[in-house]
């Protein structure tokens, strides 16, 4: 029997330096946005051997997502979104 726990935490902040962002003649970057995103993922699983090469496992995951969009040139812009997803799966694996 195999019991496992896996936690992953990710954070990203947008690269906002206009010098390095491609800007087209017809769509100038004059109302830029900054994003900050987070993903936290928690997984617990239980694996059971059936034969030497075949195994069954049950997985449960929770993913917490969060993000903000903020105006850089227009400070009035601010949007935030949060959600959580639960993912439960049953898997049959074959090992070569």
């Amino acid at each position: 029997m195999l019991l496992g726990l896996k936690v992953t935490s990710q954070r990203w902040d947008s690269i906002d330096d206009k010098e390095f962002n491609r800007s087209s003649d017809w769509n100038r970057n004059k109302s830029d946005l900054d994003f900050k995103d987070a993903r936290d993922r928690y997984e617990v699983y239980l694996g059971l051997p059936i034969t030497k090469t075949v195994g069954l496992s049950v997985h449960h995951e929770r993913i917490d997502r969060s993000g903000t969009l903020t105006g850089i040139d227009n400070r009035n812009i601010y949007h935030r979104n949060d959600d959580s997803e639960s993912r439960t799966s049953l898997r049959l694996a074959y090992r070569y």
Partner: peptide
């Protein structure tokens, strides 16, 4: 495009002959 980090922590416990 963004810059940031990814952090992971994994714990496992297995018994003998586990798949």
């Amino acid at each position: 495009y963004g810059l940031g980090h990814t952090a992971k922590l994994t714990l496992k416990q297995a018994t003998e002959n586990c798949y």
